[in-house]
Design a protein around this nucleic acid. Structure first.
Length: 626
RNA sequence: GCUGGAGUAGCGCAGUCGGUAGCGCAACUGAUUCGUAAUCAGUAGGUCAGGGGUUCAAGUCCCCUCUCCAGCUCCA
């Protein structure tokens, strides 16, 4: 048995032990659902008459230990559907699972001791004593729906960390701790990068330090895209619903849009209003008539002047394309935009910068002829390569192909998918990327790029999507060589994805110690005494002149406090300036992440070093000025 | 939206049985003028998330709302 199999077997088995322990503690009325293994352990879903909290963890862990110590044998049995139903009588989730199994299928059950039976495919340990040495700990308890369906039973899910040895469990707990320390919300607060307020849920305020970083990301993207023939546009943030009717958002995305009622949309209701739906979620609820008080103001979402904040840039890009007629000679046309988007999320969906209601994407819509798809996408991937490499992250590509409810011409789909496969085969080798069959959008196939951060966690950022639908909805055309009017294909693409989410990721990736080019302030200057402020100002001016972001603490607090302040803010270089430096026109440099100090570095040399780090967007800080 | 937790000074937190709102850092004032991660002393700072209720009395108990967090579900 290899290690992976071993992990699966004992994590699976531990889930059974967990269920047995919970039943022994909370009684036979516990309904147990399913208990799969996961990356770092396993979980089990229960319907328990009591609410399980942290205070109960120790008791459950102790009970599990006690059960393992009984050294009970595990026995596998094959039973018929009827026998299985009888065995799990009163267990509604198990009953449902059994009923869903195809007729005639052999059902396997596992007994742990003679008082606990679970429906399971196995395999499992032969005897509980095999679990004596494994290390486990209850991680947490949280809510989960039966079969992930929010309309069904809400269960208590108990998570377990489980590892083959104590050391491995310890290492994992350390990893979790590390991830916690990297939390971008915590670092964002410490480094004054961004903030939130309850008056604008899920909409970040970018503070001066964070906004500098944001601008650097934009600058990098713009520079690179300029080289690749992109042209930037900016478009209305709020558009009349007529636009959303054409794009299809009014029909398919309305619940995620912030509606802006126009003047016409306001009604003064002095009397009865018909067709008021008591519950917007419940389509079956009968509309009622409601008597509103005099002068109550309501608004009508369907009024002609109703508008909505844009959740996506695509419709405006389509409008921009449509402004004039286009020749095949002009294609590809690449409209990039960084406009602010708003997407209304259900409460509870927000999470720091990872999930917000207001954000910007490094978005682009490229209009191409079908024959240009392959070259264009290869070029997009080249951009992605350069961007991700600059942040020191690696990535993995995934191709999603035609779903069942696809729209458009199947021949076009087939050619497009073949083109995407050719690109990916070329770039990553056959099998060097994942294929998710049937996972594409209804309007076209797509390539997703998953990046991997310093802790090995994966994030979906980049996406490249072909679209045959919007050009159709907006009636886009170009005139081909033979004079006929053809429909272009649209490529939607983003590399950072959302700037907000990407910044959240790199905050955690770098733990707030950003590369020089990205740091909010790149150099912090500490004059030793106030009499050195004048020289400090000269140094700062020289650096600023060279495009270096520099901050000076010219207060009269002592130098140790000043150094500490800039260290806590993770400025890459801290310059300490006193008599010696002023006399020699040099700087003494503290390099972030090292205790080394570079004494007596000539000022012009240091300026050159900073310029070099900036122009190369270097990941590493130089530890000497040569 | 669902389950569970949380919201007290700018930040991090304490606040016991319901009985005058606390600590550390930061800020401000003064002294100190300092060579590599916290100088000393003093001062100020509060609608205890918001609203309602119980009570002689509410940060504390009850109800509603908002926001955040851990998950679920959904997503870039």
């Amino acid at each position: 048995m290899d290690k992976q199999e071993f992990l699966e077997v004992y994590r699976h088995s531990l889930a059974h032990i967990l269920a047995k322990a919970v039943i022994e503690i909370y009684g036979k009325e516990v309904q147990y659902a399913i208990g799969p293994q996961i990356d770092d352990g396993c979980y089990y879903d229960f319907l328990i008459p009591a609410s399980v909290g942290e205070a109960d963890f120790a008791a459950i862990e102790e009970k599990m230990r006690e059960i393992i110590k009984r050294r009970e044998p595990w026995t596998r049995q094959e039973v018929s559907k009827d026998e299985a139903l009888k065995l799990f009588e009163g267990q509604k989730f198990k009953t449902e699972l059994i009923n869903d199994l195809p007729e005639g299928e052999i059902i396997t059950i596992y007994k742990t001791g003679d008082d606990f039976t679970d429906l399971c495919r196995g395999p499992h340990v032969e005897n509980s004593q095999e679990l004596m040495n494994v290390a486990y700990r209850i991680r947490s308890v949280s809510g989960a729906y039966w079969r992930g369906d929010e309309k069904r039973d809400s269960l208590q899910r108990i998570y377990l960390y489980a590892f083959p040895s104590r050391d491995e469990l310890k290492a994992h707990l350390k990893f979790i701790q590390e991830a916690l320390e990297r939390d971008h919300k915590k670092i964002g607060q410490e480094l004054s990068l961004f903030m939130f307020d309850e008056t604008a849920p899920g909409m970040p305020y970018w503070l001066p330090r964070g906004w500098r970083m944001y601008q650097e990301l934009l600058k990098f993207s713009r520079e690179l895209q300029e080289k690749h023939g992109y042209t930037e546009i900016a478009a209305p943030l709020v558009n009349n619903k007529k636009l959303w009717l054409i794009s299809g958002h009014w029909a398919h995305y309305l619940n995620n849009m912030f509606i802006v009622p126009g003047v016409e949309g306001f009604l003064r209701a002095d009397s009865e209003v018909a067709d008021v739906y008591p519950d917007i979620e419940d389509a079956d609820a009968a509309p009622r008539k409601v008597m509103l008080g005099k002068h109550t103001v309501i608004y009508n979402r369907e009024a002609v002047d109703t508008m909505a904040a844009k959740p996506m840039n695509c419709p405006n890009a389509m409008m921009t394309y449509k402004r004039t007629v286009h020749s095949y000679k002009e294609l590809p046309i690449r409209y990039s935009e960084y406009d602010v988007l708003h997407r209304k999320e259900k409460s509870g969906q927000m999470n720091g910068l990872f999930r917000v209601q207001e954000f910007r994407q490094d978005d682009d819509h490229t209009f191409v002829m079908e024959s240009q798809i392959e070259d264009e996408i290869a070029d997009i991937i080249a951009i992605a390569d350069e961007i991700y490499a600059t942040f020191g992250v690696t990535y993995r590509a995934e191709l999603s192909t035609r779903p069942d409810d696809f729209m458009g011409d199947i021949e076009v789909w087939n050619r497009a998918e073949a083109a995407l496969k050719r690109i990916l085969d070329n770039k990553y080798g056959e099998g060097g990327y994942e294929v998710n069959e049937g996972d594409g959008a209804f309007y076209g196939p797509k390539i997703d790029l998953q990046i991997k951060d310093a802790l090995g966690r994966e994030w979906q950022c980049g996406t490249i999507q072909l679209d045959f639908q919007l050009p159709h909805n907006f009636g886009l055309t170009y005139q081909d060589r033979d004079g006929s009017m053809q429909m272009p294909v649209v490529i939607h693409r983003a590399i950072y994805g959302s700037l907000e989410r990407f910044i959240g990721i790199i905050i955690e990736n770098f733990k707030g110690a950003f590369p020089f080019w990205l740091s909010p302030y790149q150099v912090g200057i500490v004059p030793i005494r106030t009499e050195h402020n004048e020289y400090a100002a000269r140094v700062a001016a020289a650096l600023a002149e060279a495009g270096v972001r520099v901050e000076v603490d010219d207060t009269d607090s002592n130098m140790k406090e000043k150094i500490k302040k800039y260290k806590n803010l993770k400025d890459p270089y801290i310059l300490v300036l006193g008599d010696k430096e002023a006399a020699e026109n040099t700087v003494s440099v503290n390099v972030r992440g090292s205790n080394k100090q570079l004494q007596g570095v000539p000022l012009d040399k240091f300026v050159k070093l900073c310029e070099k780090l900036n122009s190369e967007r270097s990941l590493e800080l130089a530890e000497n000025a040569d």
